[in-house]
Design a protein around this nucleic acid. Structure first.
Lengths: 349, 349
DNA sequence: GTGTATGATGCAAACGTTTTCATCACTGGG
DNA sequence: CCCAGTGATGAAAACGTTTGCATCATACAC
């Protein structure tokens, strides 16, 4: 029986051709081949062409692993996101991809499922893979993890939540201020009894910031803190829907609900529609994220537009610049806007 | 001025500690350290513990690049998808991620943006990175590309479209049959003048298969081929919407429209709603994909449920099995179901 | 006591590049 | 004619692991 490894290399595949054989055939040294590939300007035009001809002829593909070992860079960045199915993360991820791909970098993606432990082990794995840099989601994590990154001198950018520590550069927007924008909008419309549906604040600093903004707004309003107005749930349509169900079943239902993400907002909206409740006449709903779909709903969802795409783009740019220059970038706070559509209206009473 | 590279390694970061220093400190050879890490059962319990202690003490992280070079496997798989923002691809991607992560593999993701050329260059890049295997989307691509994969003996799995070539194993569902399911549903409801909104069939074999099923059904119906009933557009809500706009503006608008993906279906639905057109009373709409959101729309979207998650899961499993065993797996066709909801109803006349 | 497994370990040769330093051939100024 | 400068190239030492083979105890059957 043949060894699996041999088989996995494929039957038709002879041993992969190496730079050494290219060098031999082109009658130059491996150094010259390497230079022809990486720094063509350092090689005489004629030599370069000869080398390239041999390379073409053999379909030579450089071994990136050996290259990484020798040059001590992998041309790969790591990206850790909580989930990929919520399209708001897909959006920033796509931007990061584009940026990286355009600069010849590959992206190693890890999905943490909102679990700190899993995130830590993913980070360790990426560290082991020697990624040149890292893009992380949120700022809250074990200090030991940050130490590990620092100790390894690994450039990293935090996203989705601003960092106040210059040693931990971030590209993000202010979740607290953004959520306040939403609350102010509802308050301006005359709402006083406002519900909140958001993510789990213990595992998600974005959800926490939004909740805090909600609570601050309610306090400012002089409304007593009422736990029954608040629902922390997972990021699923159904969770938003059942939360809304509970809110509406209450003896004194809120006249407006702040959903701290569009997924849950859409779930909440569907609950209203299932009950035949008019939105925004009988209850107002505001979301957060402004997913592309939100304006194709009916009624169109009022929401807070977050710069997911731009954030991914800038984060990738800054990370690559850091890698190239060795200089850590400064943090950047991106603007956020209220997109007023058809699910918010004046309070009735 | 210091060299960037030096700086990028970080200030606090001394040179990374190596297996050699661990070995020295634990008074064993590097071979033993390597074995303690990779095949603990081949090392005496006592020795293993001593080695581990030293490793812990120094926060030693193995250099995966050197490991990959020496062992000739990277424990990384490549995944190429056309886009990540359409949540149907996010769904299969997430499943692949989970599977890979659970087996200690990392996933290098490439986004081709439905562009064959870009896909080819991404594949080459992944080849260079020496991924242990590849998961690709669709079956239609340059023969030279397949040859390259074969030549390098790289295991790969095709997804989203079944392959008939046993040398190119696939995990997919039958797009033609699935689209026929949708058409049959409309036809059963009495519709005869049926529109089609789908992706660009020249760059997307899934869209092509669905279009062919549409055309076959229309032919079966004896309806003359009418180009004006067919719209090939990009995967955006707005594209579905404007296509629907055109369709409805026609002198003889269709009584039903088959949207070959939910994104465009949702756009189409929004156009109907903007016009105050009753769905399904005045026009029926059927989607394809059955995105999670589709049942939270109002009216809820009738659609074809595709096993995106399962497909990703099975594809990853098969790929990893192939890598481990060296034996290419057989192809697998997954079932698809019609999910009948509220956007399809009997034809009026 | 001999011979043979068995288990734990070490030695050292890969793995396929990059990169430093040295060499060599020119060029042109003095 | 000499010398410094420049540009193209090569030799060889890394880079940090894995792994085949050899070695050396120790155990056990006979």
């Amino acid at each position: 029986m043949r060894r699996p490894a041999a088989r996995a290399q494929g039957d038709a595949a002879g041993r992969r051709i190496t730079i050494r054989e290219i060098a031999h055939e082109a009658k130059v040294s491996t150094a010259t081949v390497s230079r022809a590939l990486n720094t063509p300007e350092k090689v005489a035009e004629e030599t370069r062409r000869a080398v390239m001809a041999v390379i073409e002829r053999h379909h030579f593909v450089m071994d990136g692993v050996a290259m990484s070992l020798a040059s001590r860079r992998t041309r790969t960045i790591g990206l850790i996101i909580p989930t990929i199915t919520n399209s708001i993360y897909a959006s920033s991820t796509q931007a990061i991809q584009q940026c990286a791909q355009a600069s010849g970098y590959s992206v190693l993606v890890g999905v943490s499922e909102f679990d700190g432990g899993q995130e830590a082990s993913l980070i360790r794995r990426l560290l082991e893979r020697r990624v040149d840099g890292l893009i992380l989601t949120g700022t809250t994590r074990d200090a030991a993890l940050y130490e590990t990154l620092q100790r390894n001198g690994l450039p990293f950018i935090l996203t989705w939540q601003p960092s106040d520590d210059p040693a931990r550069p971030s590209v993000a927007f202010d979740n607290f201020a953004a959520a306040r924008l939403a609350m102010d909008h509802l308050i301006d419309l005359g709402h006083r009894r406002i519900g909140l549906i958001c993510g789990r604040s213990e595992a998600n600093d974005r959800a926490l910031a939004r909740r805090l903004a909600y609570e601050a707004a309610m306090r400012r309003l002089g409304v007593p803190q009422s736990e029954w107005l608040i629902y922390e749930r997972d990021f699923e349509f159904i969770e938003g829907r059942t939360a809304m169900h509970r809110l509406l079943d209450h003896r004194l239902p809120p006249s407006a609900v702040f959903c701290a993400n569009d997924i849950q907002a859409i779930g909440a909206l569907s609950e209203c529609q299932a009950r035949g409740l008019k939105v925004p006449d009988e209850v107002s709903l505001i979301g957060f994220d402004d997913l592309p779909i939100s304006q194709y709903l009916s009624p169109q969802l009022t929401s807070i537009r977050v710069p997911a795409n731009q954030m991914g783009h800038r984060a990738a740019e800054k990370l690559l610049a850091w890698i190239a220059s060795g200089e850590p970038p400064s943090s950047e706070v991106l603007p956020v806007t209220l997109v007023q559509r058809d699910t918010t209206g004046p309070a009735r009473n």
